[in-house]
C-alpha cells in the first residue's frame, strides 16, 4: 500500500501538470495567441478561459506534493500500511468483473443493450455467481423485458439494439 500511495501521488501530480499545460492551450482558430495567454486577466474580458482550470490544477499539484510529504513523514494511513494494494482475491475479482463489464460494453455496440444485458446477466449469475440455469434465465429474461417496456415503450427512450434491431420491429408495431 505504501508504494501504491506514492506512485499514485506522482501519477496524479503529472496529470495535474498535464491539466495545467492543457488549460493554457490557445484556441485552434487563432495560432498567433501564445500558450498560457488565457490563464490571467484579459483586458475588457475579465479572466480568460484557462484561468479557472489552470489555477485549480496548480492547487491539485500542490496537494500531490503535500501527499508526497505526508508519505515521506508516514503521516497518512496508506503510507504506513503493510497490506497489499490489491490481494489475490481483489485482483481476480477485478479481472473477472472488469472483463464482464468490458464484454458488456463491447456487446452493446454489436447486439445492443438488450442482447448485452442478457449475455452479461448469464455470465455473472451462472458463471461468477454459480446460480442454476432456471433462476439465471428467469432474472435475465425478466430484466430484459422490464427494461424494454420501461425505457423503450413507457419512457420513449430508445436504447441501441445493434444487429438485433429487426427483432424489435414487431414489438414496436404492437405497443407503440
Amino acid at each position: 500500500m505504501r508504494r501504491a500511495e506514492i506512485v499514485t501521488a506522482v501519477l496524479l501530480g503529472f496529470f495535474s501538470v498535464y491539466l495545467m499545460w492543457k488549460s493554457g492551450e490557445p484556441p485552434a482558430w487563432d495560432p498567433d495567441v501564445p500558450r498560457f495567454a488565457n490563464i490571467g486577466m484579459i483586458d475588457g474580458e475579465g479572466p480568460g478561459s484557462g484561468f479557472w482550470p489552470f489555477w485549480l490544477s496548480a492547487i491539485m499539484l500542490v496537494s500531490c506534493v503535500w501527499i508526497g510529504i505526508n508519505w515521506y513523514r508516514k503521516k497518512s494511513p496508506p503510507s504506513v500500511s503493510e497490506e497489499p494494494f490489491l490481494d489475490s482475491y481483489g485482483k481476480r475479482t477485478l479481472f473477472f468483473v472488469g472483463m464482464g463489464l468490458l464484454g458488456f460494453l463491447i456487446l452493446i455496440h454489436i447486439i445492443g443493450f438488450y442482447g448485452g444485458i442478457l449475455v452479461f446477466m448469464i455470465y455473472y449469475m451462472r458463471f461468477l455467481g454459480r446460480h442454476g440455469w432456471g433462476i439465471t434465465s428467469l432474472v435475465s429474461v425478466s430484466l430484459v423485458v422490464f427494461s424494454f417496456f420501461f425505457f423503450d415503450i413507457a419512457m420513449r427512450i430508445v436504447l441501441p439494439k445493434g444487429y438485433l434491431e429487426p427483432l424489435f420491429i414487431p414489438l414496436y408495431d404492437m405497443f407503440l
Binding site: F104, F120, Y124, M125, L128, G129, H131, I135, L143
Partner: peptide
C-alpha cells in the same frame, strides 16, 4: 450475486 449484476 444477483444484486451486483443488476446494479451494473
Amino acid at each position: 450475486t444477483i444484486l451486483a449484476p443488476l446494479i451494473f
